[in-house]
Amino acid sequence: MKVTILDYGAGNIQSVQFALARLGIDALLSNDKELILSSDKIIFPGVGHATQAMKQLKAAGLTDLIPELKQDVLGICLGMQLLCKHSEEGDTMGLGVFDAEIKRFSNSVKVPHMGWNTIDNLKSDLFKGINTGAYMYSVHSYYAPLTKQSIAKTSYQLPFSAALHHKNFYGVQFHPEKSSVDGTQVLTNFLNL
């Protein structure tokens, strides 16, 4: 199976590559259009600031390509948020795949939301074999509200989307590559979709 991790200069993509290697997948890091189009699965990682990441995506020539992809795409953390319509972070326009507006947690709780939290309302094969209440590791200050496209929920200050799904696009707010056995299962499930 050919798996490509979108490389646009953002975040800690090495961890995703290592996690896939532990599953026996030798994933490519690339921003090359032909390579991406010829992949079976695509992972869209991201850590950092939304505005900066969108700029880097644009510079890598990926903003038009990503929404048109027909393969299964998994956005992780900021990757998921960039697949949404808009983010409050730096008032940034997203790629518009998911029908969600990214908001910031208010300061009535500690921000970032950092650590292990439970996920529930699991509604996709992405969570096959994972129990309601499984723990996933997250670190983020912005969140996607619950929408019709939510396939998992987490609560911190309020219930929000732990995962989104639309057609061939999937997004998870948590880091499956850092979420021990259950996180690895999510990656395995994505590869098996």
Binding site: S15, R22, K178, G183
Partner: peptide
């Protein structure tokens, strides 16, 4: 460590 460990 990053290669082998699946926690932060």
């Amino acid at each position: 460590v990053a290669r082998q460990i699946d926690i932060p």
